[in-house]
């Protein structure tokens, strides 16, 4: 492998890794705030991609606008699902496992619903970027990959600012640490949990528009990335925000380099072996390892 090829693969791995990071972040903040592993997160990704596409068909806006539209719609959908279903279950004080199972049901329901609305064939995303790569010396980089990295990193930065410096963000953090104490301090639990789902939805929807533009949109496009994001979140340390970001990027890079240097036939298998190894050796992920190091 030449250096130029290494750099190209690095950019490719970074782009797909950033997408995993966005989905993993959504999973992580929901786990932190409510303890629920949200299996429907992948379908939120799909909704974002589909809505971005629908927006483009109505008004052919530039890519960053579609990105925002897809993300917002997925966020709204996630809040609706949370308020209608998960919250109702929570209020009835059902065991946690029931809520997790309801997220699986939601995932299947959303896939089937999307299949009815948008059909079972993949739908091409509009071509928003020049296809030919930019030639930088011996290295060729697709403009699309650069956009993906920039937008995803921007999204992660926005999340950090939101969590640190806004009242809503701080109440989300407080609920994640101790829901009861937070409620005693006057934080509206329903609103904080709903905003958590909303943020996770926005992150997922953003990932969906990026994934759709990279490949295509289809009713089951979110399923596999959802699973991979779970591995990424575990790699980073479930519930850790920094861990989810790092885990996604590392997982994307591992996947890309495995495909090139070992064999593409084992690409997915390597990811799953990695998951088992992390659970055995480093159950707290990167975040745990860092805390232990301190």
């Amino acid at each position: 492998m030449t250096i130029a090829e290494m750099v190209e693969l690095l950019v490719g791995g970074l782009a797909i890794g950033c997408i995993y990071s966005l989905i993993a972040l959504g999973l992580s903040i929901i786990i932190r705030a409510t303890g629920v592993l949200n299996f429907a997160q992948g379908e939120v990704v799909m909704l974002g991609a589909m809505f971005g596409l629908a927006t483009y068909r109505l008004v052919p806006l530039p890519f960053p606008a579609l990105f925002v539209a897809g993300a917002l719609f997925a966020g709204v959908m996630a809040v609706i699902i949370e308020l209608l279903i998960y919250r109702t279950l929570r209020v009835r004080r059902v065991p946690m496992v029931n809520i997790v199972i309801s997220t699986i049901a939601m995932s299947i329901l959303l896939q089937n619903g999307a299949q009815l609305v948008w059909g079972s064939e993949p739908i091409a995303y509009p071509r928003l970027f020049a296809l030919e790569g930019l030639q930088l010396g011996p290295v060729r980089v697709a403009p699309q990959l650069v956009w993906i990295v920039v937008l995803a990193l921007g999204m992660m930065l926005a999340l950090q600012l939101f969590l640190r410096f806004t009242r809503a963000g701080l109440s989300v953090q407080a609920v994640a640490q101790d829901p009861e104490a937070a409620q005693l301090m006057g934080i509206n639990l329903t609103r904080a949990v709903a905003s958590t789902y909303g943020i996770a939805g926005i992150l997922g929807g953003a990932a969906g528009v990026l994934l759709g533009s990279m490949f295509y949109a289809s009713f089951n496009m979110g399923f596999l990335p959802g699973i991979k994001a779970f591995v990424a979140a575990t790699l980073g340390g479930l519930g850790s925000i920094g861990g989810a970001m790092l885990g996604g990027i590392v997982f994307g890079l591992i996947e890309t380099f495995t495909a090139t240097s070992i064999s593409t036939a084992y690409k997915d298998a390597v990811g799953m072996v990695l998951l088992i190894v992390i659970l055995l050796v480093l159950p707290q992920g990167f975040a745990g390892a860092m805390r232990r190091g301190r």
Binding site: M1, E8, L9, G12, F215, T256, T258, A259
Partner: peptide, 13 residues
């Protein structure tokens, strides 16, 4: 590659 794969840059490289 496996059916449903999305990224072929490894193979193409």
């Amino acid at each position: 590659y496996a059916r449903g794969d999305l990224d072929f840059t490894g193979q193409l490289t």
